[in-house]
Design a protein around this nucleic acid. Structure first.
Lengths: 264, 264
DNA sequence: AGTTGTGAAATGATTCACAGCC
DNA sequence: GGCTGTGAATCATTTCACAACT
């Protein structure tokens, strides 16, 4: 993709002095929370992708993989993959590669997939309903332990063996069932309130599908999936290609608001 | 959130020589495709978020906003917001702020939302069905122009006024209806094939919900939404908090594969 | 020979802090 | 006085390239 920029000046020869280097960090989670996080966020997201590839290799009975092959399958640069894996303290064998089953276990352990995480899903509307029935969650170690909504027509119904309860019960039920991850699939207006309830029930990780910025106390992790954003980013690329964009100069486009595409 | 790191050594006084600085890039899309992209990817994603806030401000009849307020509502740093907006050539007024309706129009224009983009959705299973009925797409200027699946039980059914057609027709129908964005919501196994069909139909932007890495020719933009990845990233944070992670040292955890949480 | 692990360079993104302008 | 626009500093991430090891 990127054009080869030709030969670049060689780096100066390596000085023989080997710097100390800590090799493996002493670990031991220093502070309560934000003190030390040796594994960067970007790496964590990629680990999940590596895991998917590893699992399929494992199913194929493959014993080892090289960083090159694994990286290609995951769609990343091999150096990046090696660095990622070195960060979680994994060890491949030089000249050979990584042991597939061992690496799989290491990645799973790092991601905390040793034990399942009970998930609460709030908002069983269109999207929420599909998510609840979407096998993906339970299948992958994230059993849906509770469903909530405010619609009386939905409360009491059973989806995939789980009864929908009223959102007022979030605090109690989540705490009782040991929910660790909350999924918000409500309309934007309700999202913050729902989020607050989840937090007060002790949920520290939230996946937000509602098109709003959730504010949470420090120590609570929110990840966002916003379909409108994704579509609009793609729209940007379409426009770029077609040259539709009015050459982002200082002058504003003449038309003030062509169409109110964005309603709420 | 972040603790104030106290007074930092003052930057050295600004030397009076003002460097040339290009101010506004000469623009004019140099090469065919990867040559120049003045707006960074990260900014584009945030523009969509700003737009949401702007729209709601517009609905409230607000005339102007300050970068501070807009940034707070979008959940970002105000300097970042100002830099983002300066990149798209917008102009606020010093001492006043940004004109809401004008800024809205500028962001919309940059994102290419002037005209709607016809969307094709492939895979009308659990998730795909919900996406098709999810008003979010059409409502925001991304009308679903075509639906595809391979399941004979689904082909021929009508969802929200659009008939589901067989996936074999992707090439023809997409080209005919001027589809510019494709959404892949099939199982992983079918995703690459579907993607190839979309590409050969001229679709240059793809939103992928299938848990696979799609390979596409240069010039095609793929964005990925992977629920398993999101959940696993959250799982990582849960584990970090609880200290469940077995101290990522060089020694592997004793158990080889605790549970096959990841099936396919 | 083949492949990992990793300093160090390169690139990219974010934040600071202040000049310039209304 | 208030607020934008932006160079420069800081921070994060990616990539390179090669020594170390099997």
């Amino acid at each position: 993709m990127t054009v080869d920029r030709g030969t670049r000046p060689a780096r100066r020869a390596v000085p023989s002095s080997r710097p100390p280097g800590v090799d493996l960090a002493p670990d031991a989670d220093g502070g309560e929370e934000s003190a030390s996080r040796p594994v960067p966020e970007a790496t964590v997201a990629r680990l999940a992708v590596y895991l998917r590839v590893l699992t399929s290799l494992l199913a194929d009975g493959r014993g080892t993989v090289s960083s090159e092959e694994l990286a290609a399958a995951a769609g990343v640069n091999s150096a990046k993959l090696r660095k990622d894996l070195s960060l979680i303290g994994s060890s491949g064998v030089r000249g050979v590669g990584y042991d597939v089953s061992r690496l799989t276990a290491e990645v799973e352990a790092t991601l905390g997939l040793d034990s399942p995480h009970a998930v609460a899903l709030v908002g069983v509307g269109n999207l929420g309903h599909a998510l609840a029935r979407y096998g993906g969650f339970a299948q992958r170690g994230f059993p849906v332990a509770a469903l909530f909504d405010v619609d009386p027509a939905l409360v009491g119904t059973v989806i995939d063996g789980v009864e929908v309860q009223h959102a007022d019960a979030i605090d109690v039920v989540c705490a009782a069932r040991g929910v660790t991850i909350g999924v918000v699939a409500t309309p934007a207006e309700a999202a913050q309130r729902v989020c607050d309830h989840l937090v007060s029930a002790g949920v520290r990780s939230i996946l937000n599908f509602a098109p709003t910025v959730l504010s949470v106390p420090a120590g609570v992790e929110v990840r966002k999936v916003d379909l409108a954003v994704e579509m609009q980013v793609l729209s940007f690329h379409v426009a770029r290609r077609h040259g539709t964009v009015p050459a982002a100069g200082p002058a504003a486009p003449s038309r003030p608001t062509p169409r109110e595409v964005f309603s709420r």
